[in-house]
Amino acid sequence: MSRTKKKRRHVSQYIQEDAGPTKAERLANPNSYESRKRKAQKDSKKPKSVYQKELEKQEAAKKQDSSDQRKGGRLADKIRKLNAEKKDD
């Protein structure tokens, strides 16, 4: 005894008259689920590559080295000199 698949008869009865908004219309609406999902996927943080992480480490090290150096001009040197003299007294 073989099993037969059930067949849908009278398919014309299953056609939906009002299927709702199309996907393009849903994406155009900023409050719809699809548009919020697409925006979240676009804005999500992407994992960085090993190469990019290494570059950022090098840039951070350079920035730290440059911030360690004293910056200033003649006025800063003058203030440092005066502070050193006050400290000695």
Rank of each mutant, 00 (worst) to 15 (best):
R36H: 05
V11Y: 04
E59A: 15
D43P: 02
L55V: 06
K45M: 03
A84S: 08
R9G: 10
Q16C: 09
G20E: 04
G73F: 06
K62E: 12
A60E: 11
R38K: 09
Q16A: 12
Y51V: 15
N31W: 06
A40L: 06
R3H: 10
D18L: 01
L55T: 05
R9M: 10
Y33G: 00
K48S: 08
A84F: 01
K46W: 07
K39W: 03
E56K: 01
D43G: 08
Q41P: 00
T4W: 09
A24Q: 11
K39L: 09
S32D: 14
D88Y: 04
R70G: 14
I79M: 10
L82H: 09
K39E: 04
G73Q: 10
P47F: 05
Q58C: 03
H10G: 08
D43F: 04
Q16M: 10
E54A: 15
K42R: 12
K53L: 12
S32F: 04
A24Y: 04
T4M: 12
V11W: 07
E56S: 02
K46C: 01
S67N: 12
K37C: 00
Q58S: 02
P21W: 01
E34V: 07
Q16F: 06
K63N: 13
R74W: 06
S32L: 08
K86Q: 07
S49K: 04
E59V: 15
S2W: 06
R36W: 00
N31S: 08
E25R: 08
K48A: 08
K86I: 05
K42N: 07
P21V: 07
D77I: 12
G72P: 09
T4H: 10
M1R: 02
Y51D: 14
Q52T: 00
K39C: 06
A40V: 02
A40R: 10
K81E: 02
P21T: 04
A84W: 00
K71A: 15
P30H: 11
S44E: 14
D89M: 13
K71P: 05
